[in-house]
Design a protein around this nucleic acid. Structure first.
Length: 350
DNA sequence: TAAACGTGGTT
DNA sequence: TAACCAAGTTT
């Protein structure tokens, strides 16, 4: 490419990263497996959120063998609250491929590592460059924001095809002597300095090589189109307790939203019938009493749930009835955790 | 390609 | 408050 200050840009970025980088748990290791775990957890997820999950996860699953042999329910429990739960099932599937096909050694080239479940273009480049020092691109949202400004790239970063533009740009700019620090430097710069709003250009190590700074365009880049609005759904949720103090539980389907997570029985609200009647019929539960517990709104990335939860005393021969202690071993999505918490509080008052 | 897929923090 | 954002991948 014609970018004239490549060497200066590389040196300024790498030296800044080495000087200013945050002290993060996954920066204390070069174990490809641990880097892999961190990269999967960090997908669409904040650093502060990830840290405790990362520490716990590697305590429970310190090696690829440990993760490969883990029970899925226990695995999901460790991911509980992190979101995007298919990540952890894909991670285990990928790790099992490494154990079976690669003698438990994470592949060190893009072609091989990219075949692993859950390893996309970004994660492949991140593990290769950070763990193995391979000069490969690792383009995330930070990198697109930083380079759209530095190079004045106006392509819409919401479009999938735009990523190729940035992958080429990264390879053109790559410091082949320091692939790890270069890639992490771009991301760290995006996280700490070249932020979406109010970038700290006066603190930027590559300000002198930034097109957007020179032309006063930082607030107009990157170009990103908006998303569509979310779908709203209203459910009635029933905490059903039998005379043994057990609660009726359900496991969600193995695919789709919150796959394989556990929840309390829910019925979609509808003007045409009573949700309670519908529930007692669907679950064959004889309802003896009902008491409102908690209403809450839970916002997913593409759906909003409006939940009304009720405490119900009832009996049924069918269904899965579990004690509180058993339920607390199960992976529950955040809205169910909140409802369970409210149930425990109400129960204590009796 | 567009949509699905979580959650919590920030503006 | 609604919208946007955060180290993306899969279908």
């Amino acid at each position: 490419m014609s970018y004239p200050y490549i060497k200066e840009f590389q040196n300024s970025l790498v030296e800044w990263f080495q000087r200013e980088k945050r002290d993060l748990p996954w920066r204390k290791t070069k174990d490809p497996y641990k880097i892999w775990v961190s990269e999967v957890m960090l997908q669409q997820t904040r650093v502060d959120t990830v840290i405790p999950y990362y520490e716990n996860f590697l305590e429970k699953f310190p090696t690829v063998e440990a993760l490969a042999t883990a029970e899925e329910e226990f695995l999901l429990k460790q991911w509980e609250g992190l979101g995007y739960y298919s990540r952890v099932r894909n991670l285990q599937a990928g790790v099992r491929e490494v154990v079976e096909n690669y003698h438990s050694i994470v592949p060190n080239n893009r072609a091989s590592i990219s075949t692993l479940k859950g390893v996309g273009p970004y994660t492949a480049g991140a593990v290769l460059s950070i763990a193995y020092g391979v000069p490969e691109h690792a383009v995330d949202g930070n990198v697109m924001r930083v380079l759209s400004r530095v190079l004045l790239i106006e392509d819409d970063i919401a479009l999938p095809k735009t990523k190729k533009v940035f992958e080429k740009a990264v390879m053109d700019l790559m410091d082949i002597k320091h692939p790890s620090d270069f890639n992490q430097g771009l991301m760290e710069l995006g996280a700490l300095v070249c932020t979406p709003t109010s970038p700290k250009c006066l603190l930027c190590p590559v300000r002198d090589y930034c097109g957007a700074f020179a032309e006063g365009q930082t607030s107009n880049l990157p170009v990103k189109t908006k998303k569509t609005k979310v779908k709203k759904l209203a459910y009635d949720v029933f905490i059903v307790e039998n005379d043994k103090g057990q609660l009726l539980m359900e496991k969600r389907p193995e695919s789709g939203l919150l796959a394989n997570m556990w929840e309390f029985p829910m019925v979609l609200e509808n003007e045409h019938y009573s949700a309670l009647a519908e529930f007692s019929q669907q679950y064959s539960v004889e309802v003896l009493g009902q008491e409102a517990l908690l209403t809450l709104k839970h916002v997913f990335s593409h759906i909003v749930w409006n939940l009304s939860s009720y405490y119900v005393q009832g009996e049924s021969k069918s269904g899965i009835w579990l004690s509180l202690e058993e339920i607390e071993q199960l992976p529950l999505a955040v809205p169910m955790q909140k409802i369970l918490q409210q149930y425990k509080i109400s129960r204590k008052k009796l």
